[in-house]
Amino acid sequence: MLDRAILAKIHVAKKQLAMEDDAYRAMLQSVAGVASAKDLTVVQAEKVLAHLRKCGFTPAAKFGRKPAPARDRKALVSKIEALLADSKRPWAYADAMARRMFQVDKIDWCTPDQLWRIVAALQINANRHGS
């Protein structure tokens, strides 16, 4: 049975590409040999998704939830956000840095000094990779 997440992704692609129902069903028939997405196998679903990507479907990136910092940390969190965006990394990356560097589970709970160190580490990485 096909995973609901894959089926949902196919339907999101259909909506994003503004496909009419007739064109969508014709595409399913030509790409996977089925009349309905619910009849797809996992392999067929991957073929359909690959075809939809070729047609211009771009899945939304999941970057996570932005922290809500205290006023004294707002500028540092904004800088971290900018550095993460430049390197196309999610907020979970910054949380993982906080865990690794300071044994703090979330960036929300870091002290201003710890946030400065995360900014420095991200900036060093950006300089190293030419960002």
Rank of each mutant, 00 (worst) to 15 (best):
M1P: 15
L2D: 02
L2G: 02
D3I: 08
D3T: 06
D3Q: 06
D3P: 05
A5Q: 07
I6D: 03
I6N: 03
I10P: 11
I10C: 09
V12Y: 09
A13L: 05
K14F: 07
K15F: 07
A18Q: 09
A18I: 06
A18Y: 08
E20V: 12
E20C: 13
D22M: 09
R25T: 06
A26P: 07
L28W: 10
L28G: 12
L28I: 12
Q29H: 10
S30T: 13
S30N: 15
V31F: 06
A32Q: 09
G33E: 02
V34H: 01
V34M: 03
A37P: 15
A37G: 15
K38M: 13
K38D: 07
D39W: 14
D39Q: 12
T41D: 12
V42P: 10
V43Y: 09
V43M: 05
Q44M: 12
Q44I: 13
A45N: 00
A45Q: 00
E46P: 01
E46Q: 03
E46S: 04
L49D: 10
A50T: 10
H51I: 05
L52F: 05
R53I: 13
C55W: 11
G56A: 05
P59L: 00
P59A: 03
A60F: 07
A61K: 04
K62D: 08
G64M: 00
R65S: 11
R65I: 09
P67N: 08
P67M: 13
A68F: 14
A68D: 15
A68R: 15
P69I: 01
A70W: 15
R73K: 14
R73S: 14
A75P: 03
A75C: 08
A75Q: 08
E81G: 00
E81P: 01
A82P: 00
L84W: 01
A85P: 04
P90S: 15
P90E: 05
W91A: 01
W91S: 02
A92K: 07
A94M: 04
A94L: 04
D95T: 08
M97N: 02
A98D: 10
R99L: 03
R99Y: 02
R99V: 03
R100W: 09
M101N: 14
F102N: 06
D105P: 01
K106E: 08
K106L: 04
I107Y: 00
W109F: 08
T111K: 12
T111R: 13
T111V: 09
T111I: 10
T111W: 07
Q114L: 07
Q114P: 11
Q114I: 04
L115V: 04
W116F: 06
I118P: 04
I118E: 05
A120G: 11
A120N: 12
A120R: 14
A121L: 04
L122F: 15
I124W: 12
I124C: 13
A126G: 04
A126Y: 00
A126E: 00
A126H: 01
H129S: 05
G130N: 02
